[in-house]
Design a protein around this nucleic acid. Structure first.
Lengths: 345, 345
DNA sequence: GCTTGCTTTGGTATCGGTACCATGCTTCCT
DNA sequence: AGGAAGCATGGTACCGATACCAAAGCAAGC
């Protein structure tokens, strides 16, 4: 394995800086870690040397020594889902100013991949781990529990969190959906979500439909229109296909879909078939995606704030990593009903 | 700074594994790095010990020693833009099987943030750096050029790449847009993109409009309808607002917008105003976003394959990091015209 | 039988930082 | 004046892996 590139003079080290500034490496380390510990004069000399050499500390080496890497593992099912991209953005915003670097792992909704990704994260010795919907594999649960660092489960409200949780109850979303549609006079109410078999599953989506089912039963309504259909990925297509399947089974007065993306797909299917929304059928989604705010008609939805989930998780972790108490084990950010134009008054 | 959590028995080290297996740490290292180097019997004993202890190697320590961290820095303007999320997914898919871990940095389209993020990445000593539209700050350029590792610029076709480039010509996109709309009989052709001032700029979008302008001039048409309007973020809203501005200036026969997301926003604005697409106005976008394939009417667009950009970049880097020649400095993946329903035949 | 060479294993130094303790010097107090 | 206390700095031993070299064991070749 010969390297064809020019030998690339090695990056300067703390030793180089210390020589140039005429101090010991230890003093350079202090200057960078906590400038208040060195005299003003020394600090100036060190910083000038850092500048002149273009020195960038090697945090890998620092982490090895201090046993704090500054990494925060973030494991999500998908980055293409804007909800998780938003959460990643919120987490980054909260933690980067304190020097933490998110390490993003994507599982593709696959239970098998979960463990592979988690292992890759653990090999980087993160200071904290944030996971979304990872509690299905026992091996993964064990790895997490034994990691010896704070673990936060997000986008969920587990009965018994491994450590902490920041999110909301997906089950409650489904129940609220049922209540909302019942209150709007619908009696034949459908629920559309992805199928529940195979390697890749959307457990949170299933949880919402479970809430819907219980809500409908409680209202004395039938729950025979809760359909599981198609793959979790490509959610746009899912909405259109699921709507088609529903129509073939006779349709419904109101439909709850597991995400706004799916609602959009269903909406387009309705347009193609000249079915009027909300006059002929009411649609209710989940997630308050940007697309639902922009399309015509605007999508009624049950909202959570994905950026806030990331931000609150970041704040919690900063506190925990500073050695403070983090407060409650479970932070429930709640859900919000946004009635717009795909439901009737 | 007292730590309230239980002392968390430290993760097992290679030393622990070696003791349990009755071999030297060096043999454990070899077993894990290249199993063919040790005898079958030894390998079995070592792997059993690894399994029993739940040992996960510390790649931070390994990287310090081997001077290969296995990190690939990926710097993008935004993760919320599905194009970049797709590229990240493609890059991950190509490189993770070889043990590389992407390190994602997000600049928020901000030139100032670029350098901060780049510095954070460099402190992790990545084996390669992938950047998207980072060539605007001289300090950042210098840092990249002196990093001593392969650098790939993506989503662009720079005149003089820092090292390598994988992408396509945004300028060519604009010219193709002009040609396409001219060929469809339009004479009053507009171009809508975000404003060109302020800290956060979408340079690639501007480049597309520059191509459009030149294309229009070449066809002998006016270019006075090329409007820069609103912020780059929140592209849905951008499309609607820009379309409104255009209509207030008298409208156009055909409009090129810098992304399909913007086209969607414009399309919704047209629906609100009962302007028919494509009968009253033709719309052409860029990016072939999922939403453009699903909405009604389906959006005509100039497509690139974002996942492919990531994948090809990953393949190139694997070759370079294996010490092979990488081939051409610039890989142009080309663009594809997809005529759908927002343009006329 | 002894050299040669291959396979398999081990020992030691080192990667670039930080933790921890030691030291020299000043300042302040009794 | 003597000693305690505090500030600024330096020295040394690691953190947990891998590179590199050495060496043991064994088979093959002459």
């Amino acid at each position: 394995m010969s390297d064809p590139r020019p030998p690339a003079r090695r990056a300067p080290t703390m030793r180089d800086v210390s020589r140039l500034a005429g101090v010991s490496p230890m003093t350079v380390s202090r200057t960078l870690a906590d400038p208040g510990l060195v005299s003003q004069e020394t600090r100036a000399r060190v910083l000038a040397a850092v500048e002149q050499l273009g020195y960038v500390p090697d945090r890998g080496a620092g982490g090895l020594s201090s046993r704090r890497t500054g990494f925060v593992a973030l494991i999500v099912p998908s980055l293409i889902n804007p909800n998780f991209a938003d959460t990643a953005t919120g987490l980054t915003a909260a933690m980067r100013p304190r020097g933490y670097q998110p390490l993003i792992g994507v599982t593709g909704y696959s239970v098998a991949e979960e463990e592979v990704v988690l292992r890759a994260m653990l090999s980087r010795r993160p200071d904290a781990i944030v996971v979304s919907g990872m509690h299905r594999s026992q091996a993964a649960r064990d790895l997490l529990a034994r990691a010896g660092v704070p673990v936060v489960e997000i986008w969920d409200r587990p009965e018994t969190p491994i450590d902490r949780a920041v999110g909301f109850s997906n089950y409650a979303v489904g129940r609220l959906a049922a209540r909302t549609l019942v209150a709007r006079g619908a009696t034949r109410i459908a629920g559309l979500g992805p199928e529940r078999t195979g390697e890749a599953r959307d457990f949170r989506g299933e949880e919402r439909l479970r809430g819907l089912r219980d809500g409908l039963r409680e209202a004395g309504l039938a729950d025979d229109l809760i359909l599981h259909h198609g793959r979790v990925a490509g959610a746009f297509a899912h909405g259109a296909e699921a709507m088609t399947a529903l129509i073939e089974r006779g349709g419904a007065e109101a439909v709850f879909l597991v995400s706004d993306i799916s609602v959009f797909g269903a909406l387009m299917e309705c347009r193609r078939r000249s079915i009027r929304v909300p006059q002929d059928v009411q649609l209710l989604g989940f997630g308050d995606f940007e697309i639902g705010r922009q399309c015509v008609p605007r999508i009624s939805t049950i909202a959570v704030d994905p950026v806030e989930i990331g931000r609150r998780t970041g704040d919690l972790l900063i506190r925990l990593l500073d050695g403070e108490e983090g407060g409650a084990a479970i932070i429930d950010l709640g859900i919000r009903l946004l009635l717009r134009e795909t439901t009737r008054a």
